[in-house]
Design a binder for these strands. Structure first.
Length: 463
RNA sequence: UCCUCAGUAGCUCAGCUGGUUAGAGCGGCGGACUGUUAAUCCGUAGGUCGCAGGUUCGAUCCCGGCCUGGGGAGCCA
């Protein structure tokens, strides 16, 4: 019984005339009189292996049924190619057809398709070069993230997907309930009676694992989360999803500078990993979608990120000598046009902005001694904007409690969070990285729907 | 959610400033060609012009509505 060899391995092998078997999907079929060429791909690499079949050796009906999209097993001899396009090829001795793909109705053609069209056939788009490259890279990045943190001694902590806390302020949440929506039990006030619900309280899908992550960090030292998060915002942009994956490291005894150092080192590690391990896919994406992709990855890898305070950023924008659609003024949040100017025009490299006004940042960020700013940090990348947001966390019980009260948040919702500041509190920091935002940068894709296998966006949950 | 552009063959698009039978390239199908590389050459089929209305003798074309998609913005990661 002959064992299957993956295409990636075959393409690297010496054409020694050995008998091999390949299994995969036919990408193209070209035929001449008496001779047929199949390009077979099995997903192990973006490249195809060429199968050469002499028509006379095979059943005519079989050859007619082997079209683009068909799945086959081919046994034959691995030899040096006579043609120019490839080093090796398989001279077919036996072909097994597993599944036909009727060319009259199979939607993928040999010619190029738009990404918009392929989104409508997300169940088949994996079979294209583009999405093969993107999702191989997505896997490689997920693996590299775990490897990075594992090698540094971080603990992968699983934070809950269903949460009972509605206290993030990170956006609208999806409700989780088993109540009969056609017959919702009511409480005396006329609202839904969640005491009758599965968890006997109101629950939602998580918008972030950060608060739970902090609990872990304040015992395990260094943790990270890597899981799905959910936002029920009506955001219709190429940079937002209702369901996306987030990486959130949280480190005890890290201050804001340690935090920035980690974020920069982490991103550069991932870029380097992609350049070293995903070269074929990167070459393809660079030539087909984004001519500057590989050069940009190398540039970001080789140059230090610029680190400036919010106050400095405002000064630069005020002195830029140009009109802004949104006003620049200390205390206002930076808009997309401002971030783009800093990253793409002024510094021409990634920028980390720190020490934002406390009024525009979350309650848990550590307050500076000036009483006006907090130890926040945003990492801004060219093309995609904010890729990382993080901060040193407020470890002082009284300051944290005061901030919760100032903002009118419900103190009792945070009892467990506050207790970590009451018992053995410690300086600590962390950040969040949107995985799909990272993938946009790594692949050169421009729409976030094209870097996640099954995008969830407003009015769209097909597949 | 706001602004803006678009929706015509399986795909990518042209067309009609209202008028008989709506076009191209690619893909499909048939044929030719002993080694092709998104092969090439010849032939051929294929359409509810996004949906439901309105104006009109007549609407794919004009008008308002709705749906879907792209781009930009907001919210954010």
């Amino acid at each position: 019984m002959m064992k299957r060899t993956k295409v990636k391995e075959l393409l690297a092998a010496a054409p020694a005339g050995t008998d091999v078997m390949v299994k995969g999907w036919v990408r193209t079929k070209r035929d001449s009189k008496g001779i047929i060429f199949l390009a077979v791909n099995d997903g192990s690499t973006i490249n195809n292996i060429q199968v050469v079949a002499e028509a006379a050796k095979f059943d005519t009906g079989l050859l007619k049924d082997i079209n683009t999209g068909a799945s086959v097993a081919v046994k034959g001899r691995l030899v040096e190619s006579h043609g120019k396009g490839q080093r090796v090829e398989i001279q077919a001795a036996e072909i097994i057809l597993y599944g036909k793909a009727d060319p009259e109705v199979y939607p993928l053609q040999k010619k190029g398709h738009t990404l918009e069209f392929l989104r409508e056939i997300a169940h088949l788009r994996f079979r294209t070069n583009t999405f093969g490259a993107v999702f191989r890279m997505r896997h490689a990045m997920a693996f590299a993230i775990h490897k990075y943190f594992n090698d540094k001694g971080f603990c992968y902590l699983h934070t809950p997907i269903i949460t009972g806390s509605d206290c993030e302020g990170a956006g609208e949440m999806f409700h989780v309930t088993t109540l009969d929506l056609n017959n919702i039990p009511k409480n005396p006030a006329g609202g839904a009676d969640f005491s009758k619900d599965f968890f006997a309280k109101e629950t939602n899908l998580t918008v972030s694992g950060q608060l739970e992550g902090e609990l872990g960090a304040l015992a395990l030292g260094e943790i990270y989360t890597f899981g799905p998060t959910f936002r029920a915002e009506n955001s219709n942009t190429p940079r937002h999803l209702a369901e996306f994956w987030m990486i959130e490291p949280e480190m005890a005894f890290y201050d804001i500078t340690d935090n920035m150092d980690l974020a920069e080192d982490f991103l550069k590690y991932l870029i380097n990993y992609a350049l070293e391990n995903c070269r074929d896919d990167l070459d393809f994406l660079t030539s087909m979608y984004d001519k500057g992709l590989i050069d940009r990855l190398k540039f970001v890898l080789d140059n230090p990120f610029e680190r400036i305070t919010y106050t400095t950023a405002v000064k630069i924008l005020e002195d830029a000598g140009r009109k802004w659609e949104f006003p620049v003024e200390w205390g206002r949040d930076l808009q997309a046009e401002h971030e783009r100017y800093l990253v793409e025009v002024h510094y021409k490299r990634p920028v980390i902005i720190t020490d934002y006004p406390k009024a525009i940042k979350a309650f848990y960020m550590k307050q500076n001694e000036d009483g006006k700013t907090v130890k926040a940090m945003d990492v801004l990348f060219p093309g995609i904007g904010e890729v990382i947001g993080g901060s040193q966390r407020e470890e002082d019980y009284d300051k944290l409690l005061n901030r919760i009260r100032e903002l009118g948040l419900k103190e009792k919702d945070f009892w467990w969070y506050l207790e970590t500041r009451k018992f053995g509190t410690a300086p600590h920091s962390g950040f969040g990285l949107g995985f799909e935002r990272l993938m946009l940068f790594m692949t050169g894709m421009s729409n976030i729907r094209d870097v996640i296998p099954f995008p969830r966006t407003p009015r769209n949950a097909e597949f």
